[in-house]
Amino acid sequence: MQASANNLNQTIITDHLVAQCKKGEVRAFRELYNAYSEAMYNICLRMTGNTADAEDTLQEAFMQIFRNIERLENAGSVTAWIKRIVVNHCLSHLRKKKVYFEEVDNIEVAEEKAGMDEDSFAWTVSAIKDAIQDLPHGYRTVLNLYIFEEYSHKEIAAMLDISESTVKTQYMRAKDKVRQIIKQKNAIR
């Protein structure tokens, strides 16, 4: 798994802390929560698109993390384990909202289109953030999982139960869409 946790607090998650969590010590759970809540909240926010759903999803995910901490074998895999639980909760949340991830025809957009540099423009963080929020759920999910959560196309395909080529195609389309949205907004200004 390529996934790494960005912006994690610098708390070192030790085997001892994990052992304390397994004993059900609330103080240890709090330490674990403090270490991961911000990064995991950002995942939820990107995936769900709003703060209320992000907090609900994060809460559910952490409850599962605390309940299933026994299954965590060692502190070394804690980040990937927690992140996967959070992402799974986000995906469940999207499915409840009737967001479906379907196979798409990948003939048209297989690679980044040539000639994109003709009317190039400078990316900005706020423009990208806004544009991603305007993406359809399916595109946004694939794009977030790949570029922000750093899962591979193969891993995303398995999570969404679609083919790897569909993931690649959806990612390319999502990226194009982001560009189009930003261009449109720039044109209006």
Partner: peptide, 29 residues
Amino acid sequence: PEQSFEDFIRQHRSEFEQPGPRPALWDKL
């Protein structure tokens, strides 16, 4: 030439992050 989408995001990764959840969330947990 335009900087690639991926490169731009990687370079500005931390700027995409927002502050964590409200403290009340821990109380609920």
